[in-house]
Amino acid sequence: MKLSRLSAPVLLLFPAFLVLAAVVVVPLALSFYSSFTPFRLTKPESLYVFIGLRNYITVISSWDFWVAFGRTVLFLTIALNAEMLLGLGLALLVSKAVRGQRLLRTLMMFPMMFSPVLVGFQFKFLFNDNIGLINNALQSLGLTDQAIPWLINGNLALFSITVAEVWSSTSVFAILILAGLLAMPRDPIEAAHVDGCTPLQTFRYVTWPYLMPFAFIAMTIRSLDVARAYDIVKIMTDGGPAKRTELLWTLVGRTAYGDARMGMANAMAYFAIVLSILFTVYFFRKLAAARQQIGAEW
């Protein structure tokens, strides 16, 4: 009786709202609320104790958290820049290919087809100090006679993880930049040659400004992964040795499920989300500016 009095649009949208509320809004609200409680999985009743900003204060004053935070930013800065440069190089090479370009493009996308968990396992094996391919190769080539502890030495472990991450995500940059290269008009490049540019100057003054929006699209997409730098690390080192490769999300995961401190973990998670949003907004601004610059009509 009462339902029939609602207007048709409201009635038709209602189920969608209901589903969204159930799977998104409620968990989000609940997790946000729980970040203001000392909620532990082992003490369910602690969910109803309100402690205000105490979790956030603890997080902010925790050295471990800031180390993980800084390491995450460092890790992503290095990984994104390396991916960007390698992707650009790959795209430029593939765009020069006269024959078999389609095959190369397909091959280039292979790493994107693997689940990050598989990539983690694969690189864990490659970097294994006893039976790994990399040590084996280095020793067979006579470059070293020692077993390099790739995943055990703190610095080397972060390096190894970066290599895995770069391997799996460079193709995102390569594909998008290649799309930019293929879409860009030939004439301005030729005009630059006539205007006196060396190949390097042509790239610097003409090609790169054209590609910048595409690079920033890739950056924006990848910056969302700030919130996902978890699986490869979890598999390869699980934050170890001695927290030397602890990133924000492994720390959050450990706090939430290892230590069962859900409230605290949620507070950290909200911090990490802010970081992710900041990265995204930054690159989005850059993208808008770059688009404006080349007068893009899309």
């Binding site: 004439d187 301005p188 030729e190 400004p209």
Partner: peptide, 10 residues
Amino acid sequence: VFQSYALYPH
């Protein structure tokens, strides 16, 4: 001078 002008848009 090119048919498509070939100006640098940026």
